[in-house]
Amino acid sequence: MTDSLLSIRGLSVEFKTELGLVRALSEVSFEVPRNSVTAVVGESGSGKSVTSNAILRLLPDTAQSSGEIELNPQDGEPVIITSLDERDPQMQNLRGGLVSMVFQEPMTALSPVHRIGDQVAEAVLCHRDVSPDVAWAEAAAMLEQVGLADAESKMRMFPFEFSGGMRQRVVIAMALICHPQLLICDEPTTALDVTIQAEILVLIKSLQRKLNNSVLFITHDLGVVAQIADRVVVMYNGQVMEIGSVRQVLKNPQHPYTMHLLSSMPGAATDFREKNKNWSDGAAIGAGTFLVEADAGRKIREFRELSP
């Protein structure tokens, strides 16, 4: 038994479509350690969002999944999330309670017709048996903590009166108000300006340290990964390519796909770029390849060079 907050073991997800079954994830396994930030990085279609949605059982009905997701809270029995029924009260408790989520687009994550304060306080009322006044006060305290000055008056405002950065702060407050042990952030800064992104990244990191929770951070931006993550999971085509500490993966990438991603970053060194330019659609990663344990908690998917 490892002492991780979350363990994903052999998670596969397929979607039923008109064209038959489409495999979105195959045999994804990784751990989210306690008190740290784990980043999942990959391009569109790599399966990063399907993974995070599977943790909260938010996949649509057309999805068929196999494998196991285990949540091991600090003070309680381990829960196998994948074995719970979607309507199981335990699952309802988990969502927004032990595990909560920050989405990419803050405007769609907030209701346009409810006041900010009511939306944040609602999470408290859903999960705990407290009076509305207590919930409101807690919401105010949480909003102050995420850096909204003069929270009391802002709570009477509506989302459309807020800027994108302020809205994302509200969404983060909603996610953190029930003190989750795992905070999932799905591209929380992608829709924001670079200056606001920097503020939100600093906020998420400092709150993680302060609240001692774990963050699973989904992103496609390796710059963001470098700044926020302790551990990195690189995904491609529904598979994990490489897992390691942020320094291991970004400073000494082993898998050709990780090198390709790094070389695609604007500003990558020219010789490094030329060498890693031609990543041929992962042809060389097929069935039968598997993650190989390298040194010190690092895993790399076996890679076979295909002859041209």
Binding site: T195, Q197, A198, V224, V225, A226, Q227, L250, L262
Partner: peptide, 21 residues
Amino acid sequence: RLLLSAIPSPDPDEKLQPLDR
């Protein structure tokens, strides 16, 4: 300067220190 300070570097040892607007 504010814009430049907000660029996240892909080097984990170059810490992001955005200027305060």
